[in-house]
Amino acid sequence: MAGLEIISDQGYRIDGRRSSELRKVCARMGVFTQADGSAYIEQGNTKALATVYGPHEVRKGRGKIQHDRAVVNCQFSMATFSTGERKSRPKGDRRSQEMSMHLRQTFEAVIVTELFPRSQIDIYVQILQADGGNYCACVNAATLAVIDAGIPMKDYVCACTAGFIQDSPLLDISYVEESAGAPFLTVAMMPKSEQIVLLEMNSRLHADNMEKVLDLATQGCKDVFAVLDRHVRDHVSESHALMTAS
């Protein structure tokens, strides 16, 4: 792929977007029947789905029970067919465990766990197709799934990536742009209170450019929030209309 320009002279990226444009987000809540809450999200070509079970009794590991709050358990997994090369270990490798831990810490901060002492909330996230921004798609899908399950949350959690390639900040990095080797930042934040829950950075970035990239990422999170919010409101009105019609 040598010689492929990430940004063309006119300012268009490989997939035709501008530098501060998000990929198209399609989301759907309540897709599965067995789970208490479920959601499916597509950000460009990245497809992720999340299911939430709980709150229910803590099963394995009696030592995990907290007497005053619920335990949040997250599991991140990528399907074997989700990447270009077949992934032989969908879960259990270090990267997945790191992602699971990040998800858990993110959601423990946001879910009002004090309402469900001595119980457990399970969040399972599955990537069906990976095209950059895997963690972000997971967080967004998990937020929708938790809302669908009716578990109280202080605020939404929206995540977005931003990178710095060829001297300009880019929003919502795809896989091709990620593999170009340039630095990129993953930000998860609570959009209403504008608090950052998780921040992760790869590669090296000059301190002067940091602020630009961070601003772009937070703006991206707010854009994602706008899309998710609309979906949630539509979903609530739809289910209410169905209920009162019957």
Binding site: K47, A79, S82
Partner: peptide, 24 residues
Amino acid sequence: GSITTAEGSALVKLGNTTVICGIK
């Protein structure tokens, strides 16, 4: 054919039971 990273894919729903198959 919805999963483009796989050589072949199919998603089947039998009532509520959902299975996705990806072939690499």
